[in-house]
Computed example of a mutant assay.
Amino acid sequence: MNTLYLLLALLAVAGWIVSTMNQRMRALQDRADRLERRLGLVLDHLGIEEPESAGLDEVRALMRDGRAVAAIKLYREITGAGLAEAKQAVESLDLKV
Rank of each mutant, 00 (worst) to 15 (best):
Q88H: 14
N2S: 10
K73I: 09
N22G: 09
L46K: 05
M25P: 02
L43F: 04
R64E: 04
A89W: 00
M63L: 13
L46M: 03
R60K: 05
L28I: 14
G40W: 01
R31M: 07
A9H: 10
L62V: 07
R26Q: 13
Y5K: 10
L35F: 13
V18M: 14
L39Y: 14
I72Q: 10
M63W: 05
R76D: 05
H45C: 04
Q23A: 11
K73G: 00
L28E: 13
N2I: 12
A70D: 15
L11Y: 04
S92F: 02
V97G: 14
R67Q: 13
D30S: 12
M25V: 06
E49V: 11
A32E: 11
G55N: 03
L35Y: 10
L6G: 12
K96D: 08
M21E: 08
A14T: 13
L74V: 00
D57S: 12
V13Y: 10
V90L: 04
L95K: 02
E50I: 04
A27Y: 01
L46V: 07
L43C: 05
Q29G: 03
N2C: 03
L10D: 08
T20E: 14
A14E: 07
G40E: 06
K96Q: 10
E52D: 08
N2L: 11
L4C: 10
S92R: 15
D33C: 04
G82R: 08
L46C: 03
G47V: 01
M1R: 14
M21W: 11
L83V: 04
E85Y: 06
L93Y: 06
V90W: 03
L4R: 12
H45F: 09
R24Q: 13
M21I: 08
